[in-house]
Design a protein around this nucleic acid. Structure first.
Lengths: 192, 192
DNA sequence: TCGATATGAATGAACG
DNA sequence: CGTTCATTCATATCGA
């Protein structure tokens, strides 16, 4: 398994090769711009995009780097899973614990189940979004192909759930615009 | 394939017992030998074993570790599902290479693919099975109880799988034999 | 470089 | 049967 055929380039901060060129990558490493897009979509309420949407999202992301449907799919799956887990843990520590109010662990519950003995002291720096979140530029994509007219009504799948109450407070309340190109997210779909 | 990673044989079992007596495992983790057996059966064409077979398979697998009928059942179910999904995905990315955003809902099937719209280099190397496939030894089990003499006559249920042609080419064309104990797969049933 | 965390990917279990 | 959730594994990245 593992054909490391995927070529993605990571390089969050090294500005050398930005697009093509990759020694050998085993796992997809989303670029900052891609993460931003994904985050936005997720936060827009589309936490579980159907296949069609997934494909569209992938195409959108491809403008910033190679990515496959599977990557997008996994991303959302992990996202949902992790959000939920975090939420659950927070809840748990809030309700069921009166014994020791977040003493050592400062409230955060990590995911790693006690792997051994290392005390779990650490820093819950970011409440819900720990991601790297490097500075992203999202500069205008020269690619002017019409992405989508964003699906107003779903192609036939009324299945989306506009999650009314998202837990994640998150800090990515982005809406980045720069270099004269504004990207707005309509219905979870980045449009310009 | 690719040992480069894996095989860490690392039983998630942090403990020491690799076999009997699990500290507390919520989910079954098939051992390499078990996987091999399952793969072989599946690749033999028995992709959807009836209950009787499932029971037998489970008993066979039990020689290498605790396992229940449900595990076997789930395994085959997931296997079938996955194989099919992958197949579909490959198809899709082949045809959709130019465009084709098929709206046929199809429910998100995703998993593996390398699309590289531009410069698609895909790797046929790992055909279809991403799974671990660790090196297995399947060393002779001193367990002399002869569980089966392979089903001579079928228990009475002619109801077998329907799918005659499986797509997955697979690479596990094993047939391992070791330390004086040869295991052959007759009719998809490992026998010694 | 090592150790910890973050997160992509794989897969067992379950749901509809 | 197809899809989704939960758990686990493997790797990228950061910090000391």
């Amino acid at each position: 398994m593992e054909d490391r055929v995927q070529d993605t380039n990571r390089q969050p901060n090294h500005g050398s090769e930005t697009e093509r060129n990759e020694p050998v990558r085993s796992r997809w490493t989303p670029k900052p711009e891609q993460i931003l897009i994904l985050e936005s979509i997720f936060n827009s309420g589309m936490v579980n995009p159907p296949k069609n949407e997934t494909v569209r999202i992938r195409k959108l992301l491809e403008k910033y780097g190679t990515v496959g449907d599977a990557n997008v799919f996994y991303w959302f799956q992990n996202r949902r899973s992790r959000s939920r887990r975090r939420q659950r843990q927070i809840q748990a520590s809030l309700t069921g614990e009166q014994q020791q109010t977040q003493t050592s662990s400062a409230g955060g519950a990590i995911q790693y189940e006690n792997t051994g003995s290392s005390s779990a002291g650490f820093a819950p720096n970011s409440l819900c979004f720990p991601m790297y979140s490097t500075s992203c530029s999202l500069v205008g994509n020269e690619n002017s192909e019409d992405l989508f007219s964003f699906s107003g009504g779903h192609p036939g799948i009324p299945e989306i759930e506009q999650n009314p109450s998202i837990f994640c407070p998150d800090e990515t309340s982005n809406l980045q615009y720069q270099s004269g190109l504004i990207t707005v997210f309509i219905n979870g779909v980045p449009t310009e």
